[in-house]
């Protein structure tokens, strides 16, 4: 356990050579999947996820157990609701981690992430514009190296932008940690930005998702024991990291927009024509 912290205090460099406030390389693409309404591919370091959005569309026939363990993470009450239902489906590929570990769809951690994502997006997407409909978001985790939830949120945001679903602003997420081992209350501990898998295992950390470039926190998930005094520093670094991520995602979207204008591809405007604005 002390491996990370001890080397850190000497050179102020982390295991992968980053400084405390450095993000890993983020590479993102949108419109990766021709058949979907919106899609994205996102890499945060070695964490790689793909997202495919279908909808808003008519809710499909309910398959057995879709509301419970199958689909999972639905927000809003099916076709009856006056808001669109956001259904999130996460598939963690067996080959995504170093040791192959298969998680069934009933895995509670995955279900919790599905529910977190659905609630996060439902708060940001203008679901009231699409009554009696459903927005399907399916995410595939191809490789994981820490900050999984953050990567999933960022990828889902990009794909929703690509799908042309009206939303308040970008929801961006990143992780933050602290170099103090948990429970220890040393004052000299530095907060860290964007944890990789090894750091996530050894150090206390949290995932934070914010709305646009405001300080408003949409989701905050902390799963490790940490002194309450560490929280403020971690949250500040995390929120700041989210703003950096937002800049990067914004550039990705703008670059794609420019490319489409140059190519003369006229956006089909999925959902824009038949949407009634109020």
């Amino acid at each position: 356990m002390p491996l990370d912290t001890s080397t850190y205090s000497l050179a102020l460099l982390r295991v992968d050579g980053r400084r405390w406030n450095e993000l890993r390389r983020i590479h993102a693409q949108i419109r990766t999947q021709a058949a979907a309404d919106g899609s994205s591919y996102l890499e945060m370091g070695h964490t790689k996820v793909m997202c495919v959005v279908t909808g808003p569309s008519e809710p499909g026939p309910r398959r057995g157990g879709a509301g419970g363990t199958g689909g999972g993470g639905g927000v809003g009450a099916g076709g009856q609701s006056k808001d669109a239902e956001v259904v999130v489906n996460i598939v963690i590929a067996g080959f995504s981690s170093v040791d192959r570990k298969r998680r069934g769809r009933g895995d509670k951690r995955t279900l919790e992430m599905q529910s977190t994502l659905a609630n996060t997006l439902a708060a940001t997407l203008h679901t009231h514009l699409f009554p009696h409909s459903q927005i399907n978001i399916s995410l595939h985790v191809l490789s994981q190296d820490g900050s999984l939830l953050a990567a999933l949120i960022n990828a889902a945001t990009l794909a929703c932008v690509d799908a042309g679903i009206p939303m308040t602003d970008y929801v961006t997420a990143c992780t933050a940690g602290s170099t103090s081992t948990y429970a220890a209350n040393d004052e000299g501990a530095d907060p860290l930005l964007d944890l990789n898998h090894q750091e996530e295992q050894e150090l206390p950390g949290l995932t934070v998702a914010t709305l646009g470039d405001s300080d408003k926190v949409v989701a905050l998930v902390c799963e490790s024991r940490v002194q309450i005094s560490r929280l403020e520093g971690m949250l500040a670094v995390g929120v700041d990291g989210c703003k950096q991520v937002r800049e990067i995602l914004d550039q990705v979207i703008k670059a794609q927009g420019q490319k489409m204008i140059l190519d003369g591809t006229v956006d089909k405007g999925t959902g824009l024509n038949d949407m009634d604005l109020d």
Partner: peptide
């Protein structure tokens, strides 16, 4: 939390956006 001031877990799983500062207040 426990009485020693250690956070064991925080879960704000989506929902309405809240200012970071007020979340810190909530924690205290």
């Amino acid at each position: 939390l426990n009485k020693h001031g250690e956070i064991c877990q925080i879960a704000k799983l989506g929902g309405v956006p809240v200012e970071a500062v007020s979340l810190l207040q909530c924690t205290n």
